[in-house]
Design a protein around this nucleic acid. Structure first.
Lengths: 181, 181
DNA sequence: GGAGCACTGTTCATTTTCGAACACTGCGCG
DNA sequence: CGCGCAGTGTTCGAAAATGAACAGTGCTCC
């Protein structure tokens, strides 16, 4: 099924923005561009993006990608469900690893191959959708899961598990029976 | 606080195993080594490791790291709480990104700097401990969280939120009151 | 205007759940 | 052995949660 998706591309180089737009158009519903990381808050609130594609180097002569990592942090703080794909021309393994460890969905090197970029953005959009659709389970199922975990963690010692769950032993018995454990 | 931690190192090169042992001894409680990815199941069940440090290239002439990715998958399937640090001499950004996306805790290049390796393994051990100590919340708190999320997701529409949680509207009102929402 | 609709907030007889108490089973220990 | 301890599984009157029903509020549409 074809999915509508909105992507926000952030880079200080207009050429890159244009190239990204051309590469992504057709693959995604909408491509917005932004040349700075300022005012992200409003930007992200205004339209509900599914992917942010962010450059890591905004300051000339500064190639360590720190701005990108900072932007990543800001974006995830604003919306933890939004997938962030980072891109850089100067990246090494160390930077890529750091980016992923900090929660980036993917990491692409400039210059990119258009099909790879589309694939990365598509996969990231899928991640976002997955996170956003992850509706809280029904309370019943949630309780069942929690009880199972608590029992496992305490090696089926009902007394301890009950205490950990914050209920009386008798109550845990009843709920175990209810859930068929 | 100094933490006891057990590390399992897997590499087909005895020199690498020795180097790893030397680098890690002192930094961690115990270092076990293994020269193959076979029989991981028993190995992991026998001792409770906090980190697995795994080489990505077991087959001569095959440098794409596929074995490492497979091993990563196997290990996480056996014990999802165990942090896996991958290492390779031939890695590029692409491989590193793939490894992290598949759930590796970190990715180090051979030859490593001993202090970096110790730091990576230490951080990974911390991750494992965090995951393992993440005891299921008390049922009450869990319910509160679920209710908050459901309300947020449905823009405070009580009727919809109640349906999503699998309880009646009146019940949701009561629980909201109980939790002070 | 007013009928239809979707949602809110509350009431109350009925049903469920609560936990303290009890009896029982191992198990280590002097 | 006899004692204490830690755990299990069950009982029962008291207390709390349940959901159908109701009245109220704000809309949209004709």
């Amino acid at each position: 099924m074809k999915q509508a998706s909105a992507v926000l591309v952030i880079d200080d180089d207009p050429d890159v923005l244009l190239a990204a737009r051309l590469a992504l158009t057709g693959g995604v519903e909408r491509v917005d561009t932004e040349s700075s990381v300022d005012g992200l808050d409003r930007r992200l609130a205004a339209a509900s993006y599914e992917v942010a594609l962010v450059d890591m180097n905004f300051v000339a002569g500064c190639r360590d990608g720190q701005q990108g990592l900072d932007a990543l942090g800001s974006i995830l703080q604003i919306d933890p469900t939004l997938s962030v794909v980072l891109m850089t021309a100067y990246g090494g393994v160390t930077l890529a690893v750091e980016a992923l460890k900090r929660g980036a969905a993917d990491f692409v090197l400039k210059p990119w191959r258009n099909d790879k970029l589309v694939a990365a953005v598509g996969a990231a959009a899928g991640l976002t959708r997955g996170r956003r659709n992850a509706q809280p389970l029904e309370l019943d199922a949630l309780e069942r899961q929690a009880i199972e975990r608590a029992l496992a963690r305490h090696e089926r010692n009902i007394t301890l598990a009950a205490a950990a769950l914050g209920l009386s032993r008798a109550a845990l018995y009843r709920r175990m029976a209810k859930h068929g454990l």
